[in-house]
């Protein structure tokens, strides 16, 4: 089980915890929690999905024990508007489609770096919703916040990420 699911689950832990040692600790926590709870695994969910959820929880627990680094406010990363409701800065659409961007190796690093610039409350919601595939209610339950807050944070996180990526992906 460790060898089969471990690599994919370590990748999950790393998305939340960029430090390799923290991610490895979270993976270890996750397998321990899984072995303890295996009696309660009812096979309704696929084993991989069940382990994925346990790993996400373990990574979030580790994240809570870490001291927060100083971060930029989300407002500084959001688009600004003129009084008439038009956007302040206008740029063209990106040069390349996501598919084209994804084929280039450096895109991967650019996107990871951009996501790491988001304030933690926003970064976590973006990861849970858009990357790990939890829905709004599941995300709200895991984080202990209201569904409305999940929705707002997700939209802001995407807008902020879009601004950061735009400086990379437009001519």
């Amino acid at each position: 089980m460790v060898r089969t699911y471990g690599p994919r689950l370590l990748a999950v832990a790393r998305r939340f915890l960029p430090n390799d040692a923290d991610a490895a600790d979270a993976l270890q926590d996750a397998f321990l929690a899984a072995f303890r709870a295996i009696g309660r695994f009812e096979g309704h969910a696929a084993l991989g999905t069940w382990l994925h959820r346990i790993t996400v929880n373990a990574a979030l627990m580790r994240l809570r024990t870490r001291r927060r680094r100083p971060e930029t406010s989300i407002e500084a990363l959001l688009p600004s508007f003129r009084a008439d409701g038009h956007r302040d800065v206008r740029r063209e659409a990106w040069r390349e489609t996501p598919e084209e961007l994804a084929t280039r190796k450096e895109t991967n690093d650019i996107v990871r770096a951009a996501i790491s610039r988001l304030p933690e409350d926003y970064r976590i919601v973006l990861l849970l919703r858009d990357i790990e595939g939890l829905d709004t209610d599941e995300t709200a339950a895991v984080l202990g916040i209201q569904a409305g807050a999940v929705k707002t944070r997700l939209h802001r996180a995407r807008m902020a990420l879009r601004e950061v990526l735009e400086t990379e992906f437009t001519p």
Partner: peptide, 14 residues
């Protein structure tokens, strides 16, 4: 378009 592209490229990269 770029809002949707952001979601897609984040998914593909991560």
């Amino acid at each position: 378009r770029t809002y949707s592209d952001t979601i897609a490229v984040a998914r593909a990269s991560l």
